[in-house]
């Protein structure tokens, strides 16, 4: 088995001025919840979560002598990480299928990246 990070691309529009009571958003929440339940039932679930807006990010850099704390993300980009799943599956084909279902559920593009395997 191998673990993959499925990250969901978001933009500012996903956070600002969203009507959470709209049927589309409600449907998206319901579909994403159902997808999460399925991941757990099928034994693929490792962890998942949704993130707040990029404006809430803080960068900490302790590569120098003293840690430096800066407001904001690594870099200002139009698309950024909005949420993610970590799944445990046999191979990429299974990961891509789940990514397609996840993308449909949360209505966002999903990037699939393998985790480095355990150093042996």
């Amino acid at each position: 088995m191998a673990q993959y990070l499925l990250s969901v691309a978001s933009t500012e529009a996903d956070y600002v001025g969203v009507d959470y009571s709209s049927p589309e958003i409600q449907q998206m929440f319901a579909d994403t919840g159902a997808f999460n339940d399925r991941l757990q039932a099928e034994g693929h679930w490792v962890f998942a979560g949704g993130l707040t807006n990029l404006a809430d990010a803080t960068v900490v850099d302790a590569t120098g002598t003293e840690p430096v704390v800066t407001d904001g993300p690594f870099a200002e980009t139009k698309e950024f990480l909005g949420g993610f799943w970590i799944i445990d599956v046999p191979d990429l084909d299974t990961a891509l299928k789940l990514a397609a279902d996840g993308s449909k559920a949360c209505q966002g593009k999903v990037e699939v990246r393998p985790f480095q395997s355990e150093p042996s």
Binding site: A2, D91, L92, D93, P114, Q116
Partner: peptide, 14 residues
């Protein structure tokens, strides 16, 4: 290798 693209003939529906 890293992404584990399988050596497998896809399932009938794919």
């Amino acid at each position: 290798k890293a992404a584990r693209i399988p050596f497998r003939v896809p399932d009938a529906d794919d």
